[in-house]
Every structure is written in structure tokens, then in C-alpha cells.
Computed example of a mutant assay.
Amino acid sequence: MSTPTEQLTAQGVSIWLDDLSRERITSGNLTELIATRNVVGVTTNPTIFAGALSNGHAYETQVAQLAAAGASADDAIFQITTDDVRDATDIFRPVYDATAGVDGRVSIEVSPDLAHDTAATIDQAKQLWATVDRPNTHIKIPATKAGLPAITATLAEGISVNVTLIFSLQRYAEVIDAYLAGIEQAQAAGHDISTIHSVASFFVSRVDTEVDKRLTAIGNGVASTLKSKAGVANARLAYELFEKEFATDRAKALTDAGANVQRPLWASTGVKDPALPDTLYVTELVAPGTVNTMPEKTLEATFDHGEIGGDAVTGAYADAHALFDQLASVGVDFDDVTQVLEDEGVEKFIASWHELKDTVAAALSNAPEIAR
């Protein structure tokens, strides 16, 4: 009997772990998850690194060495995180080779402080790519208005990109356009476009959290029946848009020339409401050619009791459209929902980034003298 994670893989879903730490790398845990949980990639963000650096002793020696060298908190963060990502990409290299570069990917994010600065985002994306120096890296860039031209410019350099913090279909359409423009520019510059990969990270559970809060405030019986449905419906409509946009003449001209499609990635798949099934954002979003990046708790729940059927997305478009008509009819302004979520997402990552900087600055100042 196959495991649920094997079944998910068989349905064309790539399982990525939404977590990374040095302890996972050095203990063999990451290798074990590849072997036993069908994990074929990793995503990181400032919150994840803040948590990793705050716990345990895995970074003490390197922090002491960096303190001895007079490194600033920013320099130390850059060194520590790129080292972790490089080591993780080496662990995933066999997966990368076996999947012709599709999987075996590890994402590292540009500083959230740069979310509204196009030029600085491009510069840091290039710097991260050159420093990690592994082909199976993804540089993570948020899908803010300033991020869109940075996504295009980074792809145009032949750099693979994970576009993060996507909430609305309108912004997703702009992300796809930015991707296609980047591949067109890379092609014109003579890059081998078959080696450039990208995912578009569509956030799921946060949509339900915000919409359900508004439905509770509306308070009528109809509104209560619509709770905990918007996140899945929104993601399903994103997949509908993905199918449509990558069937255009523009996209087909690129894929015919060897380009890859930009795969949809389901992010924020940990259930926030304890009343909901803990595998909801996995089992309800099974679709071929997608990525589901899971926190470990969701991964283990899926492995333990996930009920994986076939494609749960492409036959559900009409119901998803109907749900959004119902949300509008009870007074939920979904455009406002997605703008609030994007703004909050950037703010949360900035807060985590500053927490990370404070943690590293304290560690540097308290580093033992032995390495100095």
C-alpha cells in the first residue's frame, strides 16, 4: 500500500517542506524526509530563519567566527542563510538531476525591507544567486507592484524565481505576464531558457482567516455557510487562470522553444482554524503540475491520514466562481481582502526580518571570545 505522500506525488503534486534549519541539514532529517515523505524541495522565509536561529546551538560556532571578523548583523544573516541554502541544495541535487531541474529546489528570499524597491530587489537577487552558486536555487521575490519588474529583470538574467505573497487573481495575472516577459528577455539575451524555472506562490489559509473574520462580522445565516471556503476556491480559480494563460500563443511560443511553465505553488497550507481538517489545503488542492509547500505539522498529518483522491481542482471552477458571487452578495469586498493580506504579508515578513536582525545582533555581541 502506498502512503498518502506517495499518492500525492503520483497525482503530479510536488511536496516541498516549508522549513529549513541547520539542525535539519546536519542531523540527516532533510535526507530522511526526502526518502520517507516524498519531499522534493524546501521553501524558506525570514520567519523560518528567525525561528531556526533562535533555537538550539547549531549556529554558535559560525556566529562566534563572524563576531571575531567584525561582521554586522546584516552580513551575518546573509552568510548564515546562504550557507544553509547551499548545503540544502546539495542534499537535493539528486532530486534536481532526476527531475531535469523541475524539483530539488531550495528558495531563499530577498530582504523584505526591499519589497517596495525594485532596483535593490534585483541587485540582492543577483547577489543571493551568485553567493549560493547552485542551479537548484530559487530566489524568492514578493509579488508587490515593485516586485513585478524585479521578477522580470531577475528571470531575464537567467535566474530562477519563486514569486511569493500572491493573493488575488489580478496580481497573479500580472505575475504570469512578468514571468513571460522575463523569459522573452532571457531568450533575447541568449540564455538557455530551458534551465530557468519559476513557481508562483498562491497563499491559501490566510485568505480564509481574513474572509471568515468579515463573514463573522456580517453575522447572518447565509454568511456563516460561506466560511472556510474562500481559500480553496481562490486557489482553484488561480489554477484555471494558469491553464488559460499558458495556453496562449505567447506562452506556447516560449514553451515550444524550451521554456518551462511557471508552476502554481500552494503556500500557507497550515490550517489556522482548529475546527477544520488539518489536511484541508492539501487534499482539496490536488492538481497536476502543482507544488504544495507544507509546514512539517501539515506534512506529517498528510502522511498519517491524508485522503488523496484524484484531481480536486479542474472540475470545481464553476462552484468556485459561484462562491465568489455569494461572497460579494453578502458584502465581502474580496479586492479589499487581498490588498489587506498583501500589505499584512509584507509587514509580517519585515517584522520577522527585524526580529532576525535583533537575534543575530545579540548573538554577535554575546559570542564567546574563543573565536576572537
Rank of each mutant, 00 (worst) to 15 (best):
L327I: 08
Q79D: 15
T279E: 00
D311H: 04
L128S: 02
R134W: 11
N162M: 11
A119E: 15
P94Y: 07
A35D: 13
Y59I: 01
L280A: 11
I370P: 03
H57Q: 15
L8K: 00
F167N: 02
A251F: 13
L20M: 07
S201N: 09
F246P: 04
R236Q: 12
V286E: 01
A361N: 12
N45A: 13
S352C: 09
H354Q: 15
D212N: 09
E240G: 11
S365Q: 14
Q62D: 14
A233W: 03
H57Y: 09
S160Q: 01
D103T: 02
A52C: 09
D90K: 13
F246M: 12
A189Y: 12
T195G: 10
V42G: 06
E157I: 07
P277R: 07
N234E: 09
V175R: 06
Y59K: 00
A130I: 03
D358G: 12
V332K: 02
A156C: 02
V85P: 00
V63G: 05
G56A: 10
A173I: 02
E157S: 07
I308W: 00
V95G: 03
F303H: 12
G309V: 00
T359S: 11
V40D: 10
A253N: 14
R372C: 12
T164W: 04
Q79A: 15
Q339R: 15
I25W: 04
G190K: 07
I166P: 01
A267H: 01
D113H: 13
D123E: 15
P264S: 11
T3W: 06
D278K: 01
G345R: 05
A115K: 08
G41T: 04
A328F: 08
W16G: 00
S111W: 04
T61F: 13
A119C: 11
E174L: 14
T61P: 02
L30D: 03
A188Q: 15
P112T: 02
K272I: 05
I77L: 10
S201D: 03
D278Q: 10
L299V: 03
A328I: 08
E32H: 14
A367L: 04
I80P: 08
A64P: 05
G70W: 06
D325I: 03
F78K: 02
R206F: 10
A301R: 00
E344K: 13
N162P: 05
D256F: 13
T82A: 10
A58Y: 09
T9F: 11
I166M: 13
T144A: 08
V199P: 00
K348T: 10
A316L: 06
E174M: 14
P264F: 12
K348G: 05
V95A: 03
R236N: 06
A367R: 07
R206I: 04
L215T: 00
F78L: 05
I77Y: 05
H354L: 14
K252N: 13
I80M: 14
T5I: 12
A200E: 03
N234I: 01
G219I: 09
L33C: 08
G70L: 11
P288W: 10
Y172N: 04
L128D: 05
A318E: 13
N136A: 06
R236V: 04
T99Q: 09
I122L: 13
S21A: 10
Y172F: 11
V204H: 05
A68Q: 07
G158Q: 03
S2L: 12
A10D: 15
T99E: 11
P94N: 07
